[in-house]
Design a protein around this nucleic acid. Sequence first.
DNA 1: GTGAAAAATGTAATCAATTACATTTTAATT
DNA 2: AATTAAAATGTAATTGATTACATTTTTCAC
Lengths: 335, 335
Amino acid sequence: MGLSNMATIRDVSKIAGVSVATVSRTISKPDKVSEKTRKLVNDAIKQTNYKPDILARNFRTRKSSTIVVLVPDIANPFFSRVIRGIEQTAQRLGYAVLLGDTQGLREREITYANMVQTSQADGIIQLDCQIPFEDKNDCTSPIVNACDCVRGTNMPTVQLDNVAAAKEMAKHIISLGHTDIGIISGPENSTITNDRLRGFKQALEEAGLRYNPSNRKFGDYSLPSGAMAASDLLSKPTPPTAILCMNDEMAIGTIRQAKKMGFSVPDDISVSGFDDISFAEFFDPPLTTIAQPAEDFGSNAMEMLFDLINDKEPENKNILLPFNLIIRESTGNKK
Amino acid sequence: MGLSNMATIRDVSKIAGVSVATVSRTISKPDKVSEKTRKLVNDAIKQTNYKPDILARNFRTRKSSTIVVLVPDIANPFFSRVIRGIEQTAQRLGYAVLLGDTQGLREREITYANMVQTSQADGIIQLDCQIPFEDKNDCTSPIVNACDCVRGTNMPTVQLDNVAAAKEMAKHIISLGHTDIGIISGPENSTITNDRLRGFKQALEEAGLRYNPSNRKFGDYSLPSGAMAASDLLSKPTPPTAILCMNDEMAIGTIRQAKKMGFSVPDDISVSGFDDISFAEFFDPPLTTIAQPAEDFGSNAMEMLFDLINDKEPENKNILLPFNLIIRESTGNKK
DNA sequence: GTGAAAAATGTAATCAATTACATTTTAATT
DNA sequence: AATTAAAATGTAATTGATTACATTTTTCAC
């Protein structure tokens, strides 16, 4: 149908016998208009099937009612849950969500960040860990970081207490009697990775165990990278008896690799994950992991961004969300 | 930084000493402008750090360079791969992607469909199976259906030959000696479901086997629904020796349930999936499945939509993408 | 060098809403 | 009834780019 024969606010005003300003007000601030007029206008709107021209409105008000989500990889099950949370809250608050799959490329981040500069979007939620602006001073645009924050900026964040979560997981593993514990970590530059490592080390220390750097292998949060790192770890002359993975995908890759190499999980080796993706529960053995309220990351971030966009100071600019250690069958007593 | 101090096309024109029309042309049709002027204008653009006001442009041209993706559930790994394909191609073609997570709700579909009516978006790609318009005549908006099409409309589609794929899978299962085959299907109203069922039946028929309706259980493409349906199937006095699932999630749910009930996969029971999600390969046992080029669904749909938006007749309005039977270890000879 | 055609550029209307400000109407108070 | 304040409504400017059309400049053949 298009807009070719669309009624404008002027058509409505003529039919209702009022000015365009009154029509506009009837729509945006109905309480500023008398009941009689309101009815007149609403009837005219129905009669003409008038729909406000959003493009004209956006142009005039310099707002797009659109936000951008920067995500390194939308096919990641955790991120997609976060996005679902964002989307739902955005819809409730009257915002549309533009998807910015950056694949970790700085160039793409900048492209999307520019959309805010040009009012194409009113704000940014980033699930990435970098600052998506060429010039860090541009950070004055409304922006919220969910999941993985940049230290040393005052960017509002929604986060898990990754240190505490990793520590709790490590304590669980230690409580099962394990002393030689491997860790499959994410890339070194990520704050999440570093926080989780810190929690792990704290637990070791408190248990009087020594952190062995050769027990740390790197992955990129993908299934194959987990398998690869596990292969390294399990090929050691005396492999660790437990492996702590920084997400569920790498844990699943690890278990697969362990089985392939003839290890039994958890009898020979305990494996734990992080995130509690839907597959964790259905894997064999079901994965011990840290559950995160993924959708809440999204909805909290969106609500905070909403405040920032509308110049309300958010109550809490650094939200910490609760985690939950879920003990399933991939971890067991050291034999 | 915002737009407060942004240079406008007028500022540029003054500095360059030309008219605004010339500046506009330099940007959109540089070959219509003499080289001398072009340099003048480009210098002025650099000097002022001018960025065209996209909102104004969209308003004037009645285009948003934005498309909407309607997806029933973004957390579905297959859909998220399709979206990744859409996003990449959209970016290449200069489009932004608005995410419309409909959760299967008609109301939400309509909300998003209205964005096209109001020029907020130039077109729609739907991964859903319904027509997202109140009035079916509104289908004149540029729209492409990927994955699951509606029969009886002339809506452009990107699809798999689901009949042939399911048939090939069924033939594989039959070739292993199975005669009592269960099927865990998607919801009844879906075209995909019906096509895959048809392929299954064709294979049975060609093998001289009878289709047993009590061997069909319904799921909703989720892990737990697969487990539930499998539970039904395996509780029969003489359970089937093979179960064909209409996606990988339900297959994984099925295997999990089978193991729980003491069946060995594939020794007691063969299980197959559909989609080849990343977890399929890493499951235990690795899943026999049909691989689909998920990203290609997205990029093809986006390219077709691009043609429709720009009034080019697409070469092929009903694209069929190739599938690939991947035989792993979840299916085996009937014992 | 002239004239015609083509290329380059300029002028100004246009898109459809919002909103500051001005004006009119209504309500409240005395 | 007069006065004042408050509420309702109207007028018209404004937003920044695009583009139809008009005008000027350049090119080129003769």
